[in-house]
């Protein structure tokens, strides 16, 4: 029996399989090393980095929702300098392609972050976060206006040769316009989707549960929204799509790939089942074997035929 080819081509970036982890759900790669060897993954996306350290939002930062959860961490991170000095050397040891998620509050911030990323390290790509719903300025603002989004990508593109991923927010009326804008700006790939803005209220205190009042919804509840957006964007752009949003099982991953995702990211599911990414790799392989595909990339976009 011939092994199924899992090799995944995302523009210039080649991964050994299409399953990666989503930013903010996998720390800096070390926490889940207690469960399995992270090098079995296609790639790891690390916690979003900003130029300066951020303490993030006050607690509570998470709230459960039906088949999902809200988070409002607020981009707590050690900042660019500490990331490069302390965390990057540790990430090298994981022997896994690393995707660094960057956020900023101005075009200069994005330029600075992009130019600071070494091009000869374990960093395989830079994910440009223009979609964080949990910070007061920047973030989401860049991701909801096509002109700003394109400009952020253009500035980032000028400052690094690394492959660029644009991570888009679903909190827009027309995702296709945004996708086309970041493609024009120079994105090599598009990540779909970040969290959906939501909130919950405590019946006892009669106040919002989250310290930040509002937060981003993730988990199985958002899956159909994400599949729909991947499907729409696949038709409109040429760059490959990394699909994410509620992926917990291999069936979910197959659905995203049929919709047009070349690779998938596992996020919230890590919290529930730390082994989810590995189970998805196995299940994807078995699905291809049973359906008669020689390579997993053959199923990408089949829902459009």
């Amino acid at each position: 029996m011939k092994p199924i080819d899992l090799t995944t081509h995302l523009g210039r970036l080649t991964l050994k399989n299409p399953v990666m982890t989503a930013s903010g759900t996998y720390g800096f790669g070390e926490e889940y090393a207690a469960f399995y060897d992270p090098s079995r993954l296609g790639a790891i996306t690390v916690k979003g980095i900003t130029p300066l350290p951020r303490r993030g939002n006050p607690v509570p930062r998470v709230a459960e929702t039906p088949s999902g959860m809200l988070n409002a961490v607020g981009l707590e991170n050690p900042g660019l300098e500490a990331f490069l000095a302390t965390y990057l050397p540790r990430l090298e040891k994981l022997k896994t392609p690393i995707i660094v998620n960057i956020s900023g509050f101005s075009l200069d911030d994005y330029a600075l972050m992009a130019s600071a990323m070494p091009e000869d390290s374990c960093i395989a790509a830079v994910e440009v976060n223009i979609s964080c719903p949990n910070i007061k300025q920047g973030g989401l603002a860049f991701g909801t206006d096509p002109r700003s989004a394109e400009e952020v990508l253009r500035v980032t593109r000028k400052n690094t040769k690394l492959p660029l991923i644009a991570k888009l927010t679903p909190n827009v009326t027309d995702i296709v316009t945004l996708a086309k804008a970041v493609e024009n700006g120079g994105a090599d790939m598009i990540s779909l989707i970040n969290t959906l803005l939501g909130m919950r209220i405590d019946l006892k205190t009669r106040k919002p549960i989250l310290g930040n009042t509002m937060g981003g919804l993730s988990g199985p509840a958002v899956l159909p929204v994400a599949v729909r957006m991947v499907y729409q964007v696949y038709k409109a752009v040429r760059v490959p799509i990394i699909g994410m949003g509620g992926i917990s099982t291999w069936q979910d991953a197959v659905e995203f790939m049929l919709a047009g995702a070349t690779a998938v990211s596992v996020g919230t599911a890590n919290f529930v089942n730390p082994l989810a990414p590995l189970e998805i790799i196995e299940g994807l392989t078995e699905y291809c074997r049973q359906a008669g595909f020689a390579a997993v990339r053959e199923i990408v976009g089949l829902a459009h035929r």
Binding site: G24, G27, G56, N71, F271
Partner: peptide, 25 residues
Amino acid sequence: RMACGVGACLGCVCLVRTTDGTLAR
């Protein structure tokens, strides 16, 4: 309130004053 339980998601944090007087998560 916790999500991952293993230190990855930064959902459950507190603030401490370290020995050098700075605030840290």
